[in-house]
Amino acid sequence: MHLTRYRMTDCRPGLHALAVDHGLDPQRTRALLALVEDAPPPRLAERLLPAVGAVAALLVGLGVVMWVAANWPDWGRTTKFALLQGLVASSLLGAWTLPHARPALGLLAWLGQGALFAYFGQTYQTGADPWQLFALWAALALPLALAVRHDAVWAPWTLTATLTVVLWVQAHSGHRWASDADVLTPQLLGAAALVALAAALAPWAQRWHGAGLWAWRAQGVWGVVVISGWALMAVFTTRWGPQYAWLGGLLLAAGAALWRQGDLVMLSSTALAINVWALAGFGRWLFEGGSGSDWLGKAFVFGLVAAGLLAGTVSLLMRRHRAGGAA
């Protein structure tokens, strides 16, 4: 029997028609339909319930934060502190006593800690740089992430740690967003810190910290975005910032290391950053100087190079992915 003429997104109507054409009895019809019955994804409940719990915790935490913000001028300091502290304390107690809800409640506790630091920063004006508050938040949330040992806490923790690094670099760059030669050292130190964070959360160290694959990927994506952003700012300075070469070389080294590891998400994000970095530098070199009459030809050349670079990158990534699947 041939199914090609019944091929469609849902095969069951075609199979019903096939059963009618061939006069199959109900028992054989059910056996035929069983061939295309959709089985539920493996470990569906194990994966879906934590995800739903994490979304619920995020909504509850943001709801409390927005509630406090909406009533900021009407409530006293004690009321706001008690509400936020109660959120943190109750979520920590629940995470301790309810193992199945631990990832969601750990995420709620992480969010409550950030809300508390924001409350103190807005109320008492401590004079601390923003990076210091984020560093304190990351440091106090680290034992929580180590205890919960789940990406529901580790993944948002990576965002806190990355913002700490970014704000530290900004504070040590004269509180300005720039990528000239004067801020080379802070940016290189910040890039090294981001690479170290990604290396510490890599799968090889999972047995110590409990962070999963998505926490490592999140830290890698944040790091790639920040490092490539600093490199791109160096392209658009009056004189070429040395960060362009240093940070670009770091991206290339990260891509080479990830090539051996083979994770497609990390490889794709790093490859995209390398493409943007390379095209930005090529575009400045191509369009810098010269007369304005040849801009169309230069744009055509730039488009050809961009298309060729993208096609080559995708081809390499797919080849590496297929090789990893075969292995």
Rank of each mutant, 00 (worst) to 15 (best):
V148E: 10
L140I: 14
W240A: 14
L98H: 08
Q122W: 10
W96V: 04
Q85P: 00
R260D: 10
G53R: 04
D74P: 00
L87N: 05
L272T: 13
L252P: 01
L84D: 02
T270A: 06
G281D: 12
G23N: 05
A70F: 09
V55K: 02
W168S: 04
V301K: 03
W222C: 14
L108D: 06
A39Y: 01
W137R: 08
V314G: 01
F81T: 15
D263E: 12
G121F: 03
L264T: 13
A39E: 13
W96C: 01
L3N: 10
A118K: 02
V20N: 08
G248V: 07
G324R: 15
G248A: 08
F287Q: 04
H100E: 11
C11H: 09
W285E: 15
E37K: 11
P41I: 12
L44S: 01
D25H: 01
W240H: 05
A139C: 10
A256G: 10
L58I: 03
G174M: 03
L108N: 03
R176F: 00
A70G: 08
A19C: 04
L49E: 10
L279G: 07
T9K: 14
A141W: 01
H175G: 01
M233R: 14
Q170L: 11
D182P: 00
A323I: 11
R260Q: 15
V226W: 06
D25T: 04
W285L: 14
Y6E: 00
P186L: 09
Q27P: 00
D38L: 13
L201M: 05
A192F: 02
H100A: 15
G303I: 03
S268I: 00
L159M: 13
G212L: 05
F282A: 09
A234F: 07
L159V: 14
A109N: 11
G23Y: 05
L33P: 01
P13Y: 01
A109R: 11
P73C: 08
L247M: 05
A155R: 05
W67Q: 12
T4E: 15
L92W: 01
N275F: 06
L3P: 07
L35G: 09
L93F: 11
T9M: 13
P203S: 11
L251Q: 08
L33Q: 01
L83R: 05
T160K: 02
L213P: 00
T238W: 03
A191P: 03
D151Q: 03
G292I: 11
A307H: 03
L146Y: 09
M233N: 08
W214I: 10
L267P: 06
G262V: 13
L163K: 01
W131V: 02
T162D: 07
L35W: 04
G241N: 07
A299G: 15
Q132A: 08
L250C: 05
L201Y: 02
A307K: 02
R320G: 12
L316C: 12
S90F: 06
Q243I: 00
T313V: 11
T97L: 11
G283M: 12
F81S: 14
A178C: 02
R30Y: 00
V88R: 02
M266Y: 00
G289A: 07
P130E: 04
L267Y: 05
A327G: 13
T29F: 00
G212S: 02
A118W: 11
L189H: 04
I274L: 15
P13L: 03
P13H: 03
A115E: 12
V60M: 07
L146G: 14
L32Q: 01
R260V: 14
T160Q: 13
F300L: 14
H150E: 13
H321V: 04
L247R: 06
L133Y: 14
S228I: 02
